Simulated scan of single mutants.
Amino acid sequence: MADFFAHRRPGEGPGLALFLNAGDPPLDVLADLVLMLDEEGVDCLELAVPFPDSVTDGPVIRRSARRALDRGVGLDEVLAFIAAVRPRLRRLRIALLADWSHSLKHRDPAGTLRTIAASGADGLLVHALPPRLRAAHHAAARDAGLPVVTTCYQRSSPPTMAEAAAEATAYLYLVAHYGRSGTAPAGGHAGLAGTVSALRAHTASPIAIGFGVRTREDVETVGACGADAVIIGSAGVARIEQSLDRAGDVIDGFRAFVRSVSPIPVNTPERTGS
């Protein structure tokens, strides 16, 4: 089991995972950005193989995916990218996100999972995997030694939640809101505490919450409800888009974003008021 958030110490707040589409920014710039995330203490990069017209993503991430696709980035390019950058990382884990229909459906399942594991990816989240294929997918991932990210919603049925929790070997992604990425639950993230507690009974893997997390306050609220980590997608991707539109420094702009959302350890002067 990959311990995606092992570096967190008591008082540091929840682990931090960031979503980006591979190829947005371009892969050469992305390599420097990934090294910066490692330096800044980010725990996990959820790196997506870009795919078009995602029904679960809002306009920010869909535009990002289109830019990456227009640059010719697909699964092979992403795996080569991971293989090149992974040996240079000290802390950052990489969870690959791949859409079943666009990136995996037409490939040999077992062979592809072995190739993904060999690239150095620390885990895999398959988007829109047909339910009938889940058991075979999880078995093939175990055989390949590839930890699996599973997902469920706050309003998923208890059996669905239990299954997702039991099969998570990298981390369990609890989607805060049934809708498109970038949207938050109407009652706020604090209302997820009961769901996190219920999921604990079914998994020893970390539980990460995403959708609608934009600010440090959101991050701390997620941590207070018992989650091990928070996943930020649209807010970070929007910062990339702003830098590209303004011909700004993508790395410096994203570094500032990371620092703006990172939780402040409880024993720092900023937290204690010293």
Results as ranks from 00 to 15, higher is better:
residue 59 P to E: 13
residue 67 R to A: 13
residue 58 G to P: 06
residue 36 M to V: 00
residue 44 C to G: 03
residue 44 C to I: 08
residue 36 M to D: 05
residue 47 L to S: 07
residue 68 A to S: 10
residue 37 L to D: 04
residue 31 A to V: 03
residue 52 P to H: 01
residue 46 E to W: 10
residue 61 I to E: 05
residue 68 A to Y: 04
residue 54 S to P: 12
residue 45 L to F: 05
residue 29 V to I: 12
residue 47 L to H: 07
residue 60 V to H: 09
residue 42 V to Y: 02
residue 45 L to A: 01
residue 69 L to V: 12
residue 42 V to C: 00
residue 41 G to L: 11
residue 65 A to D: 05
residue 55 V to R: 15
residue 39 E to S: 12
residue 33 L to D: 14
residue 23 G to S: 02
residue 30 L to H: 06
residue 29 V to T: 14
residue 40 E to P: 11
residue 66 R to H: 13
residue 46 E to F: 08
residue 73 V to I: 02
residue 39 E to R: 15
residue 34 V to W: 00
residue 36 M to W: 05
residue 41 G to Q: 06
residue 66 R to M: 14
residue 33 L to G: 14
residue 72 G to T: 04
residue 63 R to F: 02
residue 65 A to G: 14
residue 50 P to Y: 01
residue 69 L to K: 08
residue 63 R to C: 04
residue 27 L to N: 09
residue 43 D to R: 07
residue 42 V to A: 02
residue 39 E to D: 15
residue 58 G to Y: 02
residue 24 D to W: 07
residue 51 F to C: 14
residue 34 V to H: 02
residue 35 L to Q: 14
residue 58 G to S: 03
residue 35 L to H: 13
residue 55 V to I: 15
residue 46 E to V: 09
residue 57 D to K: 09
residue 50 P to S: 08
residue 44 C to P: 01
residue 68 A to P: 06
residue 33 L to W: 13
residue 28 D to N: 02
residue 37 L to S: 04
residue 63 R to L: 04
residue 61 I to N: 15
residue 73 V to R: 01
residue 31 A to H: 11
residue 59 P to Y: 11
residue 33 L to M: 13
residue 51 F to Q: 10
residue 43 D to F: 05
residue 73 V to Q: 01
residue 38 D to A: 05
residue 60 V to E: 10
residue 70 D to M: 08
residue 60 V to D: 09
residue 38 D to C: 08
residue 70 D to F: 02
residue 53 D to H: 10
residue 70 D to N: 12
residue 56 T to K: 14
residue 23 G to M: 00
residue 49 V to P: 00
residue 72 G to K: 00
residue 73 V to T: 01
residue 58 G to H: 00
